[in-house]
């Protein structure tokens, strides 16, 4: 659905996006994750034909963003960051205006507006459609923005920071809505909040300093972060040496370390990548009559990975600033 090849974008003499390539299949919800200033919005702006690429190509639904810009724009719904509006327009008026720009008219337009209003919870308070957009709260503005991009039922939805500025309940609602869109739309959204992308998206693209740092499903990424899997076990009933030697005998286990935790022994078990010897450890403990108060597999957080990438970018940016100074 979306195909980006060697895309590079410079703003004047500043590189914003540096030679990135990725592919998005139809029906996927892809999360663009990156620290502020990583090039997320720039990439989205190129995809939506707002900025042309400096070099490289991007195609959306089979149309090149540069050569067939109008076709691309017809197939895309784009909600920019901070969702800009004409504050003096009423919600209904605005939706009608945007629908007309999308070649919807008459009855078709009316149905489309009713449909998106319902879907984005705008039909609830009856006077909602008659309120000037400038008077709406942040959350409602965001809903209007989302309603607007869904008017023409586009094949591709591009949402730049869709949940920024929303309260927790609204964030959850927005998340559910976006997840629901994945059935018949291709969605690209950007965020600098990991938890959010992780929960909504089927695929993540982590971008830092204008380059793709990592790409894959959340699980794939997590595995990459973790390396070999790790168990934490706390046992009582034997001495450290016995614990270590018996657990080491389990296949897939690479190493075992013991530390004292009060009168319990805390063991850190390193296993092979993707291996999960929890059941074996439990069987062993029950067979030997050890007491167990903890047995868990350590899930490495993507958060750590993300923070690390962000940190690296900041270091890089710092070096660049020093170099150019």
């Amino acid at each position: 659905m979306i195909d980006v090849k060697n895309l590079t974008k410079w703003y004047g003499s500043v590189p914003a996006v540096d030679d990135i390539s990725f592919h998005v299949e139809k029906g996927q919800i892809v999360g663009f994750l990156g620290p502020n200033g990583a090039g997320k919005s720039t990439t989205l702006k190129v995809l939506t034909c707002f900025h042309p690429p400096t070099s490289g190509t991007a195609t959306v639904a089979g149309h090149d963003v540069l050569d067939e810009s109008l076709q691309v724009r017809r197939k895309i719904g784009y909600m920019p960051e901070a969702v800009p509006f004409y504050p003096e327009m009423r919600v209904g008026e605005f939706l009608k205006f945007r629908a007309s720009l999308r070649d919807l008219r008459g009855k078709q337009r009316k149905i489309a507006i009713e449909h998106v209003a319902k879907r984005c919870w705008l039909s609830e308070p009856e006077n909602m459609m008659r309120r000037p957009i400038g008077q709406l709260s942040r959350g409602y503005k965001q809903r209007v923005g989302l309603a607007e991009v869904m008017l023409h039922n586009p094949e591709v939805l591009v949402l730049d920071e869709p949940t920024i500025g929303l309260d927790p309940a609204q964030i959850r609602a927005m998340r559910d809505l976006i997840r629901g869109l994945g059935d018949d739309h291709t969605v690209i959204l950007s965020s600098h909040i990991l938890a959010e992308v992780e929960q909504t998206c089927s695929r993540l693209i982590i971008i830092a300093a204008g380059k793709i740092a990592a790409e894959g499903t959340a699980d794939e990424l997590r595995r990459r972060v973790l390396g070999p899997s790790r168990l934490i076990v706390e046992l009582k009933g034997a001495d450290d040496g016995e614990f270590i030697s018996s657990i080491k005998a389990i296949s897939n286990v690479r190493s075992v370390e013991a530390t004292a935790a009060g009168n319990w022994t805390r063991l850190t078990v390193q296993a092979d990548t993707n291996a999960d010897p929890r059941s074996e450890v439990f069987a062993l403990a029950s067979q030997k009559g050890w007491q167990m108060r903890e047995l868990r597999r350590e899930i490495g957080s993507l958060e750590d990975f993300f923070v690390q990438i962000t940190y690296e970018q900041n270091v890089l940016a710092g070096e660049r600033a020093v170099a150019s100074a």
């Binding site: 109008l70 017809r74 784009y78 999308r102 070649d103």
Partner: peptide, 14 residues
């Protein structure tokens, strides 16, 4: 100023 130019120019309008 308000950024609506972005929504306007990403709509299918020349």
């Amino acid at each position: 100023r308000s950024g609506t130019v972005e929504t306007l120019m990403t709509a299918p309008i020349t």
